[in-house]
């Protein structure tokens, strides 16, 4: 997993964004500013979310895993957005349903059917609501990084 970039600077606490478009834009622009994705990534993420939403209903703290086609990505990376105020996302399996999402795990992928281990770990994290709660509730960026790093790397 050494080829997938993830560090403390890729964990963002967001409190100004009012809806999922703003949240996705902030995270995508951040990745772009750091050269990890191309400037086409943001629009690709936004249109993908509209067509095939990425909200996952977990029954507790809901999560979204926005991602898009590999041609928009320079360097594989994970960007985590922690939302102070949940925003609505459409559910992946039921786009008619809106769910409150508090944690965004934005994936910048460079392999079509690759990154299997990392993707499995992201899904494990999503299913481990104890860890998700720890991430959401902590105000200490070091703790948050440690929890996510231990789970994903």
């Amino acid at each position: 997993m050494s080829e997938i970039k993830f560090n403390k600077s890729l964990i963002l606490k967001l409190n100004k964004e009012k809806n999922n478009t703003e949240v996705l834009s902030t995270l995508a622009e951040y990745l772009c500013k750091h050269g990890l994705v191309k400037d086409t990534y943001k629009n690709a993420i936004l249109s993908r979310e509209e067509e095939y939403p990425t909200g996952l209903f977990t029954g507790n703290i809901n999560i979204a895993i926005p991602h898009t086609d590999i041609q928009h990505v320079n360097q594989a990376a994970i960007c985590v957005g922690i939302l102070e105020n949940p925003v609505k996302f459409h559910a992946m399996d039921n786009p008619g349903k809106k769910i409150d999402v508090s944690l965004i795990i934005m994936l910048a992928l460079t392999e079509v059917h690759g990154h299997v281990n990392m993707l499995q770990k992201v899904i494990e994290l999503i299913q481990n609501q104890k860890l998700v709660k720890e991430i959401i509730q902590s105000n200490n960026s070091k703790t948050i990084y440690k929890v996510i790093k231990e789970q994903l790397l």
């Binding site: 079509v112 059917h113 990154h115 299997v116 993707l119």
Partner: peptide, 15 residues
């Protein structure tokens, strides 16, 4: 199958 055929289908296929 998934939206982009990249991420969630990879996890589901491996499971």
């Amino acid at each position: 199958a998934c939206g982009n055929g990249i991420a969630t289908s990879t996890v589901v296929a491996s499971k």
